[in-house]
Design a protein around this nucleic acid. Structure first.
Lengths: 252, 252
DNA sequence: GTGCCGCCCTGATCCAGATCAAGTCACCGA
DNA sequence: TCGGTGACTTGATCTGGATCAGGGCGGCAC
């Protein structure tokens, strides 16, 4: 893999950011079954491709959208990792989630009709922008599109719910690592080795832990030879054991 | 109000359970803007009313649906309060939420295509059952229905997210009480006096606290004259102060 | 009536994880 | 080469809320 060189720049051959390899990316995107010609009639597909807009690159720290902005579109991450977060009025950040290539961002903005959080690039990020108005119009014509949207929304409820549970630091950490692994695997990446693009502090915040606790738990997992860590590079060595630790918050 | 007499039975005049006062109920339901004739063409409305099925009563402790059952319908609570929860394999319950009259249950089941949790009546419960397949078909014909569903789903993501935050016992409790008050108010009930239908243990579990902590926090709120508590009857005395305590998790 | 049971409250103790305080290390710009 | 800075780690201490233990009370069966 080695998608990102040691200067943080994307390698030229990066399959994700490379628009020349569009089909390969779309096939792994959360919206792929919709965007790709899979039984959908051609004119409708044409409409979908017209309403998709490729945006990027965003550099590390750049905002894809900001809290409070009027809702107009949802986004699929094409390349890089996006963090969503809110800043409360005491100035403390709360990390809501990390969005990997192929995953959607902005679904939580439909109801309030404005983005309820910030979306920030954690490295070099490319996205597909879907105008939501156009998308819903299309959804009335193509039941598959509608169904896909319902499912994506429903799935996000489940994710948020799992995180809300009452669990120990080790349970949370194990579940987080396995979840990342599964999501990378679902997009065609390695399920055992990947890079934690986000800083420890963001992981900690997301899991409602202190960053010191994250360090310590990772250390313990290393000592028990469940994982191997080198900076932000991570390898899962004993996924069964991790699953066992995380069993109470994995099922959903 | 006094909707429930001291034997736990519904009073005869209960406006919610009374099918004779259907319009009044529908006007306060989360789906009301859809079910009621508000610009929607008549034949479509007819279809909607056909697909709605009134179910109940469920007695305290009865299941509306169980985890693992194949997903087929979403429900609007007509009367009573519904608790959703999961039991992990260690046998510990986790309360996901409470659903008041007019609110929807089951939206989180669309993606896994089976109910990911149990829905249990906390008192005498009546529901409207919406076949999801029929509803989505209708949604392709009536954009308002589709839009409503998108919004309901998106709103649930927001709710689950808020709960996932890292907050103190007092913040959680204050936010919980204000949230209940706002939801009762939105359905036409008093915003300052209502009944906590659920036992303390369920509140505690939902807020990821011990029931002892719930007791103590309520006690402290009483001492500070923010609320008045008599068993399960509750009155909010100083909502501004409560809002101040809960400010970090209310905005969303 | 009496005993039982479910729910709630209160006090004492304990502990997981937060916070505080120092480091180390890699990177970078002058 | 030398600070400076930001991300990460490690150890010491503190604390909010869990857990444990006990008791009160109202409803209900007998």
């Amino acid at each position: 893999m080695n998608r990102i060189d040691r200067h943080g720049r994307l390698a030229e051959t990066d399959p994700i950011a490379d628009d020349g390899d569009e089909l390969r990316f779309c096939s792994t995107c959360a919206f792929g079954s919709v965007c790709l010609p899979a039984g959908v009639d051609k004119s409708a597909l044409q409409e979908l491709h017209v309403l998709v807009e490729h945006v990027g690159p965003y550099r590390n720290g750049a905002h894809i959208f900001r809290r409070g902005e009027r809702f107009g579109a949802i986004f699929a991450v094409r390349g890089g990792v996006v963090k969503t977060c809110v800043i409360d009025d005491a100035g403390r950040e709360q990390v809501l989630g990390f969005h990997l290539p192929g995953e959607m961002v902005g679904l939580n903005a439909i109801h309030p009709d404005k983005y309820p959080c910030d979306a920030v690039a954690l490295d070099t990020v490319y996205v597909c922008r879907f105008s939501f108005a156009a998308l819903t119009t299309l959804a009335t014509k193509i039941p598959d599109v509608q169904q896909k949207l319902f499912r994506l929304l429903s799935a996000d409820i489940g994710k948020a719910t799992t995180l809300a549970g009452d669990h120990t630091a080790e349970e949370r950490m194990a579940a987080f690592l396995l979840d990342l692994a599964a999501r990378y695997a679902a997009r065609g990446f390695s399920a055992t080795r990947f890079r934690l693009v986000m800083p420890r502090g963001d992981i900690a915040n997301h899991l409602r832990l202190a960053s010191e606790t994250v360090s310590r738990v990772l250390r313990r997992f290393c000592d028990r030879e469940l994982i191997r860590v080198d900076g932000r590079e991570l390898e899962l060595l004993d996924r069964d054991q991790l699953r066992c630790i995380a069993r109470n918050l994995l099922p959903e």
